[in-house]
Amino acid sequence: MPVTAASLPISKYHQVYLVLREQLHEGRFARGLPGELDLTRQFSVGRVTVRRALEQLAHEGLIVREAGRRSRPASRPAHDAPRPAQAQAATSLKGLLGDIVNATRGTSVKVLEWRVIEASPDTAQALQVAEGEQLRKAVRRRSTSAGPVSHITTYVPEALVRGFGRAELAHQPMLQLLQEAGLQPGRAVQTVSARQADARVAGELQVPVGSALLWVRRVVYDTQERPLQLLHGLYRPDRYEYQMELSQVGAIDARIVVTELLF
C-alpha cells in the first residue's frame, strides 16, 4: 500500500509542513525546495495544500518565497541552539563501538546509496571542511526478521573511505571500517530527538508518512579531535531503543537495543 499524506489523522497541510520542516532542519534543500507540482506528486495532495504548508514555513522564517522562483531555505546562524526536546551527550567510542557491532548482529543491511557529493553548509560545518569539498554519502537500511529497523545516512570525507566500498559497508558498521583503515575514533557528540518520516523514509521503514521516528545525529571525532563522520539515523521506536546509564557524574554508559518485538 503506498504511503501518502492521508495516512495520518491530522490535516494534510500540517503533515506536509511537518515533513518539510524536518527536511529543512536536516539541510536537505541547500539548492532550493522542489516546485509545488513536484510536492503535490510526492505527498499525493492538492496544490492548495502544498501552498498552505509553504506559507506556514515562510511565516516561521524557515524558507524564503519569491514570485517566479523556487522557495529556498532561510539563512541560519552559524551555530543553532539546541531545541528543548533534544538531549545531547558526548559518548565514549571505546564502549559505543563495541555496542554498535553487537547491536547489528542478527540484522541485515541494504545499501541504498553510496556516492560522492559536495559538502553543503551544514555538513561542511559539522565535519570542519570547506563547502563544496567532496564527501562520501552512504544511506543504509537495517532490518531484522521482523522488518526494517533503521534508515541511516552518513557523511565522511572522501579521503577517509578509499580503502572500502559498498560491499564492505553491507557487512560492517562504518565506524568499524574506519577503525580497520587505521583511524582512531575518540569521542562522539550526539543529539537524540524525534522526526517525522518523509515519503522516502516511510517507504523504506514501512510506516505511514509523518510517523514519529527516533532521530539520532552523531558527529564522531578521532583522538586528535578531527571529525571523522556525521551520522543522521532514523529508527522505528517499536523496534529500537537507545539506553543511557549515568553511573557517576561525568560518566555515561550508552547501550543500544534492537528488538524484533512489535509492541
Rank of each mutant, 00 (worst) to 15 (best):
P77D: 13
E204N: 04
E55W: 07
Q125N: 15
V258A: 05
M174P: 06
Y155V: 01
V48Q: 13
L112W: 06
T259V: 11
A67S: 00
Y17C: 00
L228Y: 02
P227F: 04
L37P: 00
V207L: 01
R52I: 01
E260P: 00
V111R: 07
R69V: 02
R217E: 14
R31D: 13
L178W: 02
G68P: 01
V258D: 04
L127G: 03
T223H: 08
V209T: 10
T91W: 13
E36T: 13
R65K: 15
V109H: 02
Q23F: 02
L127F: 10
E118Q: 15
R140N: 08
A89R: 12
R141D: 06
S211G: 02
T191M: 03
S150N: 05
S11W: 00
P2D: 14
Q229K: 05
Q128N: 11
H14I: 05
D99M: 14
R69I: 01
Y155I: 01
L62W: 07
V258E: 12
G203D: 09
Y13A: 10
L205V: 08
T259Q: 15
A119L: 10
Q248V: 00
L169G: 08
M1V: 15
V111N: 07
L178M: 05
P34W: 12
R162F: 03
E66F: 00
A254R: 06
Q56N: 02
F29I: 04
G95D: 12
D253T: 09
V207D: 01
G46I: 07
A146P: 02
W114D: 14
F29E: 03
T223R: 14
T259P: 12
S108Q: 08
L160K: 06
I256F: 03
T259R: 15
V209K: 03
I63T: 06
E168S: 15
